[in-house]
């Protein structure tokens, strides 16, 4: 406590729910940004991240309100609490940005990603790939005598796990959408 009886660095004073200290620990946050769907808006968001040296782990974007021309950008990023707060404040400054939500703070949130994976192989490996796909509830969306294309949805770490298992079984290509996320509950 300081002489003035205001706790230094207190969070409740912050306009942006700052966590207590300027910590060095990197956190992973999922941020949802509602933007006007005008030309160049994605470039503004990406340019902000590259220009200010922030990380992007994943980014997805699509128009979600066709009449209101609003797109939702979901960004997964990492940084210290201070950097995360800056990222949100900087996103908030972009003129066509309507709203910024930190789903990691406001959560819990549902996070899902879709991936399609091509696995090429024959014999036992092929059988094993199919068996694992079944366990992971991945669908076969294309098959030849030598290959499968699987489609899988889930949290990013589930997709990571599935891809890791497929690698020795002949994984040749993978395409991922990046994370889409919504808060749980109403």
């Amino acid at each position: 406590m300081s002489a003035l009886h205001i706790k230094k660095g207190s969070t409740r004073h912050s306009a942006y729910n700052l966590r207590p200290t300027f910590s060095d620990v990197e956190e992973r946050h999922t941020i949802a940004v509602l933007v006007e769907n005008e030309p160049g808006v994605l470039a503004r968001v990406i340019g902000l991240f590259s220009g200010r040296g922030y990380n992007i782990e994943s980014l997805t974007v699509a128009e979600v309100d066709h009449t209101g021309h609003l797109s939702r950008i979901t960004i997964v990023t990492t940084g210290t609490p201070q950097v995360i707060e800056q990222i949100k404040a900087q996103l908030g400054r972009i003129v066509p940005v309507h709203d910024v939500h930190d789903l990691t703070v406001e959560g819990p949130a549902v996070e899902r990603e879709l991936a399609i994976l091509k696995v090429v192989g024959q014999g036992d490996k092929r059988v094993e790939a199919l068996r694992l796909a079944d366990i992971f509830r991945a669908n076969v969306v294309d098959s030849t005598l030598n290959s499968f294309v699987f489609e899988i949805t889930g949290a990013p770490d589930k997709i990571d796990a599935f891809a890791d298992l497929m690698r020795p079984l002949g994984l040749t290509e993978i395409a991922r959408t990046g994370v889409a996320a919504l808060l749980r509950g109403d």
Partner: peptide
């Protein structure tokens, strides 16, 4: 104790930790 009056929320806590932020 640091108080900071600024119209731009990104100016607050950007460099120096603020105790009383006023946007």
């Amino acid at each position: 104790i640091k108080a900071h009056i600024d119209i731009d929320p990104s100016s607050i806590n950007k460099v120096i930790k603020t105790d009383i932020p006023i946007v």
